[in-house]
Simulated scan of single mutants.
Amino acid sequence: MTGAAYVEFAVREARGVSPAYERLALAVSRDDEVLALVGTLPPDKRQPNLLFGVVRLLGGPVDDPVAFHDHTVANWPAIAAQMRVRATQTNEAGRCAALLPLLAALPQPLALLEVGASAGLCLYPDRYAYRYGDHMVGTGEPLLDCLSVGRVPPDGVPDVVWRAGLDLNPLDVADPADVAWLDALIWPEHAHRRARLRAAAAIAAADPPLLVRGDLVDDLPALAARAPAGATLVVFHTSVLYQVPAPRRKAFAEVVAGLPGHWIANENAEVLPYAALPESPDEGLYNVLALDGTPLAWTRSHGQQLTWFP
């Protein structure tokens, strides 16, 4: 079971995106000793991103499967301890490139509330620059590249007057330890994403968002109620619900659908299903971008591709 999950990660997520992680995940899927160690963890703590991120955080090698095996076996108590207390909180500002077309089309100004906000770097879509092929939107750094297929990108960024995030464990870009964890979650070859993290973190540090420690069902209504009158409330989330048990996902969908404003979901169709979807562009892992429960496009997990439905 765990081995199959590592094969799926290699084939659907890492292939064509991170050769190092594709190679490493396939090696782990065949490594009985490492799989046995990972199997001692709770099921929700066994995923490849978490294991690889923790090993990187602790200074271990992820570019050589043999060295990774030796390091992981020799240092398993420390690795396991970190995996038990951490979660994959990848805070990829690039995901804003997939969200921007919907945000720019809603009634302005906006009050943004991100569920599973991590350090809140996706709460600044108005501060980033975007490049959709030859089409540029916004100015400054970081510059977010996205392949957009099937719809003309927007001409401008949204007007954001309030930004808040809800997370079980909010991260602080002013804390070097939290930034080190965000860095460790970035895949080995992705130097552009590390530069993007630094640029986005500087923006958040200069104008910190409201980050609240809380549960996505129990604490969402109270935080949403703090949004300013006269702004359009937008509750959004990206690649978060796979970490939430199915009954809580259903409860969350009911809660968010009952709030005023709009709901943007960018999640894998297996965790937030829809009645009918067109075929995905290829065998890679795609999220479904949806507005108020209506699916609109396929997206890649780091915001690098956006394919609109016909």
Rank of each mutant, 00 (worst) to 15 (best):
L220R: 05
R163E: 07
P158F: 06
D207T: 14
L166E: 08
P142V: 01
A231T: 09
A225M: 06
G214A: 05
R196F: 08
L259M: 11
N169Y: 02
H262M: 12
L171R: 15
R193W: 06
L182V: 07
A265I: 01
N268F: 14
A195N: 13
G230M: 11
G156Y: 00
L210C: 08
A227Q: 02
D167F: 01
H190D: 08
P154W: 00
D145S: 11
V161W: 00
A253D: 14
A174M: 03
I186V: 15
W263D: 06
L233T: 03
P170R: 04
N268T: 08
Q243K: 07
A225Y: 07
G150Y: 10
W162T: 03
V173D: 03
A224G: 11
L144G: 01
L147H: 12
H237Y: 11
V244Y: 11
E267C: 05
P158L: 05
P153C: 09
G138V: 03
A201V: 01
V149M: 00
T232C: 04
P221H: 13
H237E: 10
A164N: 00
A201Y: 04
T232K: 05
A246S: 06
R196A: 11
V235A: 09
R198C: 04
V256L: 12
L210S: 08
A265G: 14
D178M: 02
R194M: 08
A201I: 01
R193Q: 10
E267M: 09
D172R: 14
D155I: 02
A201Q: 02
A174N: 15
P153G: 12
V234Q: 04
G230A: 12
R248L: 09
A222K: 08
D178L: 03
A246D: 13
L185N: 07
H237C: 10
A199C: 02
T238Q: 10
N268D: 15
E254Y: 00
P153T: 07
G150D: 08
R196K: 10
L223K: 12
A177M: 03
V161S: 05
V217A: 11
H262T: 13
P245H: 08
A204H: 12
A200P: 10
D218Q: 14
Y242A: 13
P245Y: 08
A200H: 10
A177Y: 00
P245A: 04
A184K: 10
L259T: 13
G165K: 02
I203K: 08
A200C: 09
E267D: 10
P260V: 07
H237K: 13
P245C: 07
V255Q: 13
D218L: 07
R194I: 06
I203F: 03
L143V: 15
P209A: 15
D175P: 01
V179K: 07
P158S: 13
P170C: 11
A204W: 09
P158I: 05
A199N: 04
L185W: 04
P221W: 10
A204C: 13
G165R: 01
D178V: 02
G150K: 11
T238V: 15
P188H: 10
A251D: 09
R249V: 15
E254F: 00
L147M: 07
V235N: 13
